[in-house]
């Protein structure tokens, strides 16, 4: 319990960000027409690719003799980039088709 309390006090602002972001996420998504469900899912999919930043941090601070961290970090950056780039490009391709004709 003490650990939890001190964790809360230390990370208070992060807890606030989490709680408010949850409400924001719900608010932003509600009232979406069904036709946009797929592009929206795909767009959200690209956004969680933000995990790549963690991968860059891991890779960037791995010491040069820590091969496990370097190799795994390298893979993590590749996979994260795949998620980000692939996600945004696929979403863009889908949405391109919704363009108003003329």
């Amino acid at each position: 319990m003490d650990a939890l309390a001190s964790f809360f006090l230390e990370n208070q602002h992060m807890v606030y960000i989490v709680v408010l972001s949850i409400f924001l996420g719900i608010e932003v998504i509600s009232n979406v027409p069904a036709i946009l469900h797929t592009p929206l899912m795909s767009g959200a999919n690209a956004i969680h690719g933000v995990v790549i930043i963690g991968a860059i941090i891991v890779m960037g601070h791995a010491s040069s003799d820590d091969y496990l961290a370097l190799v795994l970090g390298f893979f993590a950056v590749v996979l994260g980039t795949l998620n980000v780039v692939g996600g945004f490009v696929v979403t863009n391709r889908m949405l391109e088709m919704f363009k108003k004709k003329k």
Binding site: S21, I22, G25, M41, A44, H48, V50
Partner: peptide, 9 residues
Amino acid sequence: GGILVGSAG
């Protein structure tokens, strides 16, 4: 980013 996608998803 993560939480936003978590809750919106």
